[in-house]
Amino acid sequence: MAKSPKLLQDKEIVVEFQDVSYGVGANNLLFDLNLTISKGEFLVLLGRSGSGKTTTLKLINHLVIPTAGKVIVHGRATEDWDPIQLRRSIGYVIQEIGLFPHFTVEENVGLVPSLEGWKPKTLKRRVYELLDLVGLEPGKFAPRYPHQLSGGQRQRVGVARALAIDPPILLMDEPFGGLDPITRWEIQQQLRHLQAQLGKTVIFVTHDIQEAFLLATKVSLISEGKLVLEGTPTQFKRSQHPEARRFMACCQISQ
């Protein structure tokens, strides 16, 4: 009984885009997007700057509302969700991390649990557990303020904060953009293990193809607001789509 639902869950669809378009005024940014993300999948949305990846991500937690079509999360269209409840069930890590500068690391990580009314003791235990999980020594880092951390440490805090109430879905918007290559590599490795270990569904935005290959179980290539390619990293490498070829070309140069 314990095993059969798990098998089923492997194919359970967590997020689904149905003919989603989005635009501001007459200016369309996304066109007829169809996308399904299954439980436990690590989906990387790859594309150039301005291609519409971030918008796609924000459609999932209702920060952006589709002008046509539907985004379905856990079987319910985002418009039918209470946006607050929806967002609390989705972890969110953004480009500039967005740590609150007036909160300590402990308060930042514990924000969502405290909004959910957790007791201080449980909250503290959870925060320490999370800091451990992302490789920050709790006793040392919990009382610090964001400005007292290095870039990599801040990113780790950002990840810990997103995981605080154990949301099944994690949205990450170019979270490792500003890091040096070594720190970046370390933290990417860590994220990969973390995802495998916790079984989260991750939707990850990047324009870095190496990062995409390292992390993704599935890559979705977005170009000028359209989904042009979807597949495993291996399938991506073999693709003849011109935008995919361009990305591959960069990859070869840097290697």
Binding site: N61, I84, G98, L99, V112, L115
Partner: peptide
């Protein structure tokens, strides 16, 4: 900084919580 506000909204803070806590 708009990213701070967006982080707060994205984590599911209500408008009032965002106002008074951030």
């Amino acid at each position: 900084d708009p990213t701070i506000r967006e982080a707060g909204r994205g984590m599911g803070m209500t408008d009032t919580q965002l106002l008074f806590q951030v």
